[in-house]
Write a protein that binds this DNA or RNA. Sequence first.
DNA 1: CTGAAAGCGCTTACAG
DNA 2: CTGAAAGCGCTTACAG
Lengths: 334, 334
Amino acid sequence: MPKVTIETVANRVGVSAATVSYALSGKRKISQEVTDKILKAVEELDYRPNITARNLASSKTWTVGLYASPTQNIREDYFFNNILAGVLDVLHEKKYQIHLYADYLDENNKDHPDLNLTQPIDGALIMNPRINDVYIQHIIQCKIPYVVIGTPDDRENSFYVDADLTAGYYAAVNYLIKKGHRKIILMNGSAKYTQSEKREAGSAMAYHDNGLNYSNDWILNVQMLEEEGYRVFKQTIEKISDFTAVITFNDTIAVGVLRALKEKNIHVPGKVAVISAGNTMITRIHAPSITSLDMNSYEIGSKAAELLVDVIEKKRIQPSHTIIQTHLVEREST
Amino acid sequence: MPKVTIETVANRVGVSAATVSYALSGKRKISQEVTDKILKAVEELDYRPNITARNLASSKTWTVGLYASPTQNIREDYFFNNILAGVLDVLHEKKYQIHLYADYLDENNKDHPDLNLTQPIDGALIMNPRINDVYIQHIIQCKIPYVVIGTPDDRENSFYVDADLTAGYYAAVNYLIKKGHRKIILMNGSAKYTQSEKREAGSAMAYHDNGLNYSNDWILNVQMLEEEGYRVFKQTIEKISDFTAVITFNDTIAVGVLRALKEKNIHVPGKVAVISAGNTMITRIHAPSITSLDMNSYEIGSKAAELLVDVIEKKRIQPSHTIIQTHLVEREST
DNA sequence: CTGAAAGCGCTTACAG
DNA sequence: CTGAAAGCGCTTACAG
């Protein structure tokens, strides 16, 4: 069974490969008559263009790389699903495909062989940027257009889409303060993520604007996993006293925190109020249901994808960013 | 800024492109001396091989296509996350990358233009196969190796990995019958998925082996979304009486069902017992926590990926399948 | 141990 | 409106 190429089609119709290519792409007008013959031959021969060859010749892959979290985090976080859905929907509409990369970065290992194995992409979407993110550095070195989902170090020169987490955490902490809370534990994410910085900043502003002091001891940095939220918070309960509220980096950590509280028979919200961020399905379902900061994750994903396509297609050259508003959804945990 | 190709490197070192290629791939021994010079030049020139060109020349892409659900479903289902994590982990280890496709099939539209836009892949992983699945048909036509996650129509000639759902639903329904339930509603998935068939079969067997009759009226087919589970079950409560238990296609539907029950003030498990399938995070978190059939979703994903790599690399030629055992995790809802 | 060259299957200026 | 041909940047038999 001989391989069917554009040549095969051209030969059968009696035209050049160029004509077949143009007829199929529509990049040049080909007479209706010839076009019909070509389409018929394509059908009969069951011709399928070799996309790799097309990509090489046109230096365009119609593919976008999505750099996501470690799989461990992906397993627990609906936030990823919502971002992903937004990204997928937009890219589908714009005819782009998606290459998904999980984060397998070994923090202890300085060389990152994987980075070079990447398939060719027209652009990249980078979730959860670290401070000094090696993925971003790699993408920049490869001269690939990219959009950060979250906030990168170099805000001036980057395209990015993020929720206004500083405002969000300001509002959330402010809300707690107005309710009379004075000592609020921040179960933040790992300090190496820029997202953690913003949460801390918003929180600090709220204390400040209310004329209150707070201590850095009240801020804990944990991995974004339920088990870690649970484990660390159990220790926290022993070490820190008198706190009356907790605000977490995300919903997953909140679930762990609530488990620790339940185990210690500490009533929520009677003794301790809890606020999470993400407003994913689990916040509604949990008992008690969890007050959560909605970040419009689907919209973050879709806006980022739209922006990336514009950047790839040079419809935008000047670095720009979109900041999406958050809003607090009150539930039983506060 | 001139583009750096393998030629650039070869010229600087004073060898042929072939030698550079071999030195880099290790497919032929190149003297240590020359190799060192090449590596130095690669470093200095910041040479990055064009993967598209490599793919074309070697007719190998090191990429696997993952055909997933519609994004609507992805948003709500941790089951997807767990499968995905298993797939990603194995493929990463085996040096393959992943192209993610959501299902945008328009059921009402007979031509599927998207299918032809696919990027070149070495193999495909197909989740949630439909009966007469067009994705599978397409992949077969393209002569691409594939593994089904779930059970395909043509079991004889396919590679696939699935949970033993028939046994799982048999066990679950049997468990309910032993507890005295006689009329159990099956909130099944859409009838066009093979997964729904298997659930129904296991359930039927359990009735049969206990010498009981059941009615097809007790089986409902719904989309795999919380809202649909809720909407349809609310009607069901009105239409069907005397049932004492519900078993659902997945966790998401169960959440909808439980919401409908709560709204009607029907106590769970006092009046109605509920079992779901998936055993994702939400079953633990929900109040009441949900008895659920664990399908080892991470393992399904990882086994499927392993199998696919073997098929791609011709380590397996004869169609084969892996059936993974399920187990029922008892919680408050029963 | 290394080189010269064909080939992968497309696209796209260049010509007419 | 169409063709002949160069080119995309690699890999891999074929030779020596």
